[in-house]
C-alpha cells in the first residue's frame, strides 16, 4: 500500500523536525523517515546528555531536551514517523515522487526534503580483512532472529550496552564469550554486574583483547585471532557479533543523481533546492558557499525551503507571509 502526503522528510534530527513546523504553518503535511529507532538524530543518538550553547534564546540545552521540545513544538501538525528504516529508492511520478524504504514502506509526496545530517547511522564494522565475506552468515552487527544462536558458540565483541545486553540474553541458550579491550565497560552498571555474575558462575567467558583477524574457516566455524598485551591467541566460534556503536554514511542518497560537493548535497541559498527540482536539502547534509554546520543554520534553511515547497503543493494558491504572534489562523493551527 502506498501512503500519501505532501512532503517526505528524510532524517528526523533537529532540522528535519523543525521543517515539519515551518511546512505545517503553510498547511503542508509531512512524513519523516529515519534509520534510527528514535527521533532526534545525532542529538539523541550521539550526545543526548551533552550541552549545546548556541541555540538562540537557550543559554544551554542538552541534545535530548532540544529533541523533546521540538517534538512538542511540531505536535500540532501530527507528522507521521517511519523509524528503523532507510529510504532506499525514489521514483518520479507525474507530479511528485514515490519514496520507498528498505522495509517496503512506500510514500507518495509532492516534494522530498533531505535533512539527513551526516547520513544514516549504520553499525561500525571492525577493520578485519575479509569480514564482509562472512556478514549475515557467521558475522552479525544486529540481531533479528536470536533462535539461530541456540546451542552455538558465540563471540560477542564490545563494551557498550548492545554487547552486554546480548551477552546476558544469549547466555541462556548459547555458549557465549565476551571480548573487550579492557575490564571496564561503558554499558549500564546493571548489565555489567549481571554479566560479571554470569562470569563468576561460569555461564559465560570473558576475554580481554581485540580481534585482529579471521585466520581460517572450517566446517562453517570461524577461527579468530585476537591480541592482548601483544600476545596473540585463537578462538573458534560459530558466530561473531561485533557491537562497536554506530557511524554515519551518506548511503543510497549518493545514488540519486543529485549534484554533490564532497559528499554533501549542493543547494541554492534562496530555496535550498537541489539540482533536481522538488528535492530539497537542509541542515548538515547540504552545501553552499559559506555553509556552516550549525543547527541554527538548518532552522533558517527550513523556513526558506518551506516557501518554495508551498508552490509545488499549492500551485494555484498565493502564499501570504504571516507571523505566529499576530495571525489568528496560524494560532488556530498551533492549537493555542
Amino acid at each position: 500500500m502506498t501512503e500519501k502526503t505532501d512532503v517526505v522528510i528524510i532524517g528526523a534530527g533537529p532540522v528535519g523536525l523543525f521543517a515539519v513546523f515551518e511546512l505545517g504553518l503553510l498547511n503542508i503535511k509531512c512524513h519523516l523517515v529515519d534509520n534510527l529507532d528514535k527521533v532526534g538524530g545525532q542529538c539523541a543518538e550521539l550526545y543526548p546528555e551533552k550541552p549545546i550553547y548556541d541555540i538562540p534564546s537557550r543559554p544551554v540545552v542538552t541534545g535530548q531536551q532540544l529533541t523533546d521540545e521540538l517534538i512538542k513544538q511540531i505536535n500540532p501538525f501530527n507528522p507521521k514517523f517511519h523509524l528503523n528504516q532507510q529510504v532506499e529508492s525514489i521514483a518520479k511520478t507525474d507530479d511528485g515522487w514515490i519514496v520507498q524504504t528498505n522495509i517496503g514502506t512506500k510514500v507518495e509526496a509532492k516534494c522530498i526534503v533531505v535533512a539527513a545530517g551526516a547520513g544514516s547511522f549504520v553499525p561500525r564494522k571492525p577493520p578485519i580483512e575479509n569480514i564482509e565475506n562472512f556478514e549475515n552468515k557467521n558475522v552479525f552487527y544486529a540481531i533479528r532472529d536470536k533462535s539461530i544462536f541456540k546451542n552455538k558458540k558465540i563471540l560477542i565483541a564490545g563494551g557498550g550496552d548492545s554487547a552486554l545486553d546480548w551477552t546476558n540474553e544469549l547466555s541462556k541458550d548459547s555458549n557465549v564469550t565476551l571480548i573487550h579491550r579492557r575490564k571496564e565497560f561503558r554499558a549500564a552498571p546493571d548489565s555489567v554486574s549481571k554479566m560479571q555474575e554470569l562470569e563468576t558462575k561460569g555461564k559465560i567467558k570473558f576475554l580481554k583483547g581485540q580481534i585482529k583477524k579471521i585466520s581460517k574457516i572450517q566446517n562453517s566455524k570461524l577461527m579468530l585471532e585476537y591480541e592482548n598485551d601483544d600476545e596473540r591467541s585463537n578462538i573458534e566460534v560459530d558466530y561473531l557479533l561485533p557491537f562497536f556503536g554506530l557511524k554515519m554514511e551518506l548511503g543510497p542518497i549518493a545514488e540519486w543523481g543529485l549534484n554533490l560537493h564532497e559528499n554533501l548535497i549542493k543547494v541554492d541559498t534562496e530555496k535550498f533546492e537541489t539540482s533536481t527540482p522538488s528535492i530539497f536539502a537542509i541542515g548538515d547534509i547540504n552545501w553552499y558557499p559559506g555553509k556552516l554546520k550549525l543547527i541554527l543554520s538548518g532552522f533558517h534553511e527550513s523556513a526558506l525551503m518551506a516557501q518554495e515547497v508551498f508552490k509545488y503543493c499549492f500551485p494555484d494558491k498565493k502564499n501570504i507571509f504571516r507571523y505566529t504572534t499576530s495571525s489568528k489562523e496560524l494560532q488556530k493551527k498551533l492549537g493555542v
Binding site: 577493520p127 563494551g159 571496564e184
Partner: peptide, 11 residues
C-alpha cells in the same frame, strides 16, 4: 574519553 575509545579499533 576512555569509554569512547571502546568504539575505536586497534586501540
Amino acid at each position: 574519553e576512555e569509554s569512547m575509545l571502546d568504539q575505536a579499533f586497534d586501540v
